[in-house]
């Protein structure tokens, strides 16, 4: 069980979300939050004690509390407006963060929060 379970979807190749990403549906118990570039956000799974300014925008969906076995999802419609590489970072973090099992993924690329993310990229063509 977690007090809070956050699902973060970040857009490291754009400066602001604008109309490029729209939330279609979600079943998280709380309303998703849009994090803008420059917003103060947590750092290094510190539970708020360390913070940093966001270098790119993201969407955070979250539920609290979260019981074992619960499933939550969020659907986004993403429309890149420039050609080239378009990357999405995805991760989930449980709060309180007590061990390496409190986040996913467990290894790989680290984002601006010094936290592990799964990276997904597409090449956008005209």
């Amino acid at each position: 069980m977690a007090d809070i379970q956050i699902m973060s979807i970040a857009f490291p190749t754009i400066y602001q979300i604008g109309d490029k990403a729209k939330i279609i549906s979600y079943n998280f118990t709380q309303s998703p939050r849009y994090i803008k570039t420059g917003d103060e956000i947590g750092y290094d799974y510190s539970g708020g004690t360390k913070s940093i300014q966001a270098q790119y925008p993201s969407i955070e969906a979250y539920s609290r509390p979260v019981n074992p076995g619960a499933h939550y999802s969020i659907a986004l419609k993403i429309t890149p407006d420039t050609v080239g590489n378009f990357t999405i970072f995805a991760k989930t973090v449980a709060i309180p963060h007590t061990s390496n099992n409190s986040h996913f993924p467990y290894s790989g690329i680290k984002d601006h929060q010094n936290e592990y993310v799964e990276s997904f990229s597409v090449i956008v063509e005209q």
Binding site: D3, I4, G42, G47, G48, T49, R64, I95, P96
Partner: peptide, 10 residues
């Protein structure tokens, strides 16, 4: 003080 996230169990 420590500015932690004061979640339910904490």
């Amino acid at each position: 003080d420590t500015n932690q996230i004061v979640s339910a169990s904490m």
